[in-house]
């Protein structure tokens, strides 16, 4: 890995993980997931041939939580402490923007992974309620992780491009995400549409490309 990419990646990751607020956000994510499972928990009921809704409640809840955390909460709470923006990194390292963007993006991948994987012990409850198989549990969490990464990248874009309007821009993107999630979800159980993920990936790539090329100045000049 390029030395600069690695440096940006490690420093960005440290800036997040060594901030105790990150772990409070993680604890909140786990607790809300656990609360959702407890709410839909089939306890005290005679076991019969109907599938508990625990699995679907957990997955959809985790998906929304991953979106909210990566798009909004994480950026709003942790920005302007030790987390540097791309412009700040550029002036610090005096290099092109792509190693910085790449390092920040890889850092977002690891952060999202930690957030999602830390809900596995709670997800085991969903499996033990009989609502999902282990395969379904892991594959669904993998899908949520991928979508979380993409939303994290969109969050990075918003953080760098819409610093002043971060809250409202993040809330708008989140609203669009929730509406599109509502439209594509089905009643037959949790199943993410890969076209839906692909659509958000395109958005994230366009955003990251804009960070590097600054389309507005390319199209309309400085």
């Amino acid at each position: 890995m390029n030395e600069k990419v690695l440096r940006v990646f490690i420093n960005d990751l440290k800036a997040y993980l060594f901030n105790f607020r990150f772990w409070l956000i993680d604890a909140g994510l786990i607790f809300i997931s656990a609360a959702l499972i407890a709410l839909s928990w089939p306890a005290g009921r005679e076991w019969n041939f109907s599938r508990p809704i625990t699995g679907d409640v957990f997955f959809y809840g985790l998906l929304v939580l991953a979106a909210v955390t990566n798009l909004n909460i994480k950026n709003n709470i942790l920005t302007f402490s030790q987390v540097l923006t791309i412009r700040e990194w550029k002036s610090k390292l005096e290099c092109k923007s792509w190693p910085i963007i790449l390092g920040v993006c890889i850092s977002a991948v690891v952060q999202t992974l930690i957030l999602i994987v830390s809900t596995v012990p709670v997800g085991i409850f969903a499996y033990l309620s009989g609502a999902v198989t282990l395969n379904k549990l892991y594959s669904s969490m993998f899908s949520i992780w991928i979508l979380g990464i993409i939303l994290g990248w969109i969050g990075i874009y918003l953080q760098n491009k819409f610093t002043k309007y971060l809250k409202s821009a993040g809330a708008l993107v989140l609203l669009v995400f929730l509406v599109s999630l509502l439209l594509h979800s089905n009643s037959l159980g949790f199943k993410l549409n890969w076209m839906f993920i692909f659509g958000y990936l395109i958005l994230a790539v366009i955003g990251l490309a804009d960070l590097k090329f600054d389309f507005r100045s390319l199209l309309f000049g400085e």
């Binding site: 656990a34 499972i37 407890a38 009921r45 076991w47």
Partner: peptide, 17 residues
Amino acid sequence: PNSIMLPGKIVILLVSI
């Protein structure tokens, strides 16, 4: 079907906490 008794909601929350 065979019936089983799962632990209560409070247990789930306590273990999670």
